[in-house]
């Protein structure tokens, strides 16, 4: 576990798409290291054959019938858009992923 106590902060920050200042990196590296150490007590718990809890009160088949309703006007949809053109959101050029 212990080597887990230090994470590859650059890798994870990129996964989370958050740019960190070098000070933040340094600070988080330490703090998150402590937090992960603190989390290690989880590894001692015996969870053999225990079902995970995804929902406090699980139910099945919570769904709707397929009935269509009206949506936003283009104005409502773009109400908070930082940049738009031709009723669409403008983003810097994207390379196909």
């Amino acid at each position: 576990m212990s080597e887990e106590s230090s994470m590859d902060i650059d890798y994870v920050a990129n996964l989370a798409r958050i740019e960190l200042t070098s000070q933040e990196k340094e600070k988080f590296q330490g703090q998150l290291g402590d937090v992960l150490k603190y989390f290690e007590k989880l590894q001692e718990v015996d969870v053999e054959g225990v079902e995970p809890t995804a929902h406090a009160f699980p139910r099945f088949n919570v769904w709707d019938k397929d009935l269509a309703i009206d949506g936003f006007s283009a104005e409502e949809a773009l109400l908070n858009a930082p940049k738009s053109r031709n009723q669409q959101i403008v983003v810097p050029k994207v390379v196909e992923e």
Binding site: L67, A68, I69, D70, F72, A77, L78, Q87, Q88
Partner: peptide
């Protein structure tokens, strides 16, 4: 439950759920 479709004016087949606005939640079809 906002309707599906093709060739409609841009961003008019949207609602809080489609746009992922704060607080929007999904319900299965």
């Amino acid at each position: 439950r906002v309707s599906t479709g093709f060739g409609k004016p841009p961003n008019t087949l949207t609602n809080p759920v489609v746009l992922g606005l704060p607080g929007a939640l999904p319900v299965m079809n």
